[in-house]
Amino acid sequence: MSEYKFYNTKFIFWVLNGQVIEQRHFTSTDVRGRTQNDGKLYVDSKTTEMNEVWIRGTDGSEFSLTLANSNLPLRNGQDVSILCIKKENDQQGLYCGIKNKATGKWFQIKSGGDIATRYGLVKTGCLKSVWILIKMILLYIAALLVSYFAYLYITGKELGGDTISQISFAVVIAYAAFKFFRYAKVNNGKCSLLDDHIAGLMNSL
């Protein structure tokens, strides 16, 4: 139905049509404990309203979707369209949206951020952090050498080791801050664009 490129990864969108045959509503509660500086234990809980929807496709196959905190009105017997997404050449994908054909309303199952995280496209995480650390070390060494030889060339005097270290450290910190905010901005922008694309497809169904 549609192609979409996220960084260098190509995605394919397609649509499944079917009919709601059964629903099951339930709640899911996540409970976590945390200890504050006063030594007391505090408990945080989050309750999510879930709706398991069973759908019979046009080919007769049946499958289920689980909608979290959905305000999408659905009744058994109503026709729906499900927007799916997968990486190019993958056999399976994800459900990312469902639309009630009777009301025209739709609900996004997976956000752009969810999809990017699921496929490892968000530029964060352990491997990315290690790679940034390696680049910072290399940059630090390069900054040491550049600071030393630049000062020596300009003044004809050798620069003290402590001063070189301070300059290099400042360069590395500035670089790390730049990369952090750049990745955060780029990731948020990319995910928002993917959300907009999904919204456009859902509205056109």
Rank of each mutant, 00 (worst) to 15 (best):
Q91S: 00
V53K: 03
E22Q: 12
N51P: 01
N69H: 03
E3S: 05
K110C: 12
A184P: 01
I115D: 04
G189R: 05
L127Q: 11
D196P: 02
V20T: 08
Y4P: 06
I198T: 01
D38A: 00
S192L: 14
A102L: 09
V171L: 11
A176C: 08
Q23P: 03
K135F: 11
E3V: 00
F13C: 09
S192H: 10
E22T: 00
G39M: 05
D195R: 06
I109E: 06
G18Q: 03
R56G: 01
T9Y: 09
C191T: 15
Q166C: 01
D114T: 05
I141Q: 08
V80Y: 04
P73A: 03
E158W: 04
L133F: 15
R24I: 02
L194V: 04
T66Y: 01
V31P: 05
L139C: 08
D59C: 10
K185W: 14
L83E: 05
S2T: 06
G120N: 13
R24H: 14
S111P: 03
F180R: 06
G57V: 07
Q92I: 09
P73Q: 04
W54G: 02
L201E: 11
F178K: 10
G200R: 05
S28F: 13
K190D: 06
I141Y: 11
Y151W: 14
S2L: 08
F149N: 06
G60Q: 09
N188H: 13
V186D: 14
G57M: 08
Y175F: 13
G189S: 13
F180E: 10
C126N: 09
A150M: 10
Y4N: 08
F11I: 12
T163S: 12
R118A: 15
Y119A: 02
T29M: 06
D90G: 01
F63G: 02
V31A: 03
N71S: 10
K87Y: 04
S147I: 07
I137K: 05
F107T: 03
Q36I: 03
L144E: 11
A170I: 10
L121A: 01
A176D: 11
L16K: 11
K179A: 11
R32A: 10
H197F: 15
F181R: 08
I82S: 00
T35C: 01
F178G: 00
R118G: 00
T48N: 13
I21H: 06
L193F: 02
T29S: 10
K105F: 07
G33N: 13
T47L: 05
F6G: 00
S70Q: 01
I173W: 05
I134V: 14
A174T: 15
K105M: 12
F63A: 06
S147H: 03
S64Y: 09
G120H: 04
A142K: 05
Y148L: 12
M202Y: 03
K105E: 15
N69T: 00
V15R: 09
V172Q: 02
T29H: 00
I21N: 04
C126A: 08
L16M: 07
E52M: 09
I109C: 04
V186R: 12
I164N: 00
K179E: 15
D44W: 01
N69G: 04
A177G: 08
T155V: 09
A116D: 03
I109T: 07
E158V: 07
C191P: 01
D44N: 13
L139P: 02
F63H: 10
Q91V: 00
D30H: 10
E62S: 09
I137T: 06
T27M: 07
Y153K: 12
T163W: 01
E88A: 08
T155C: 07
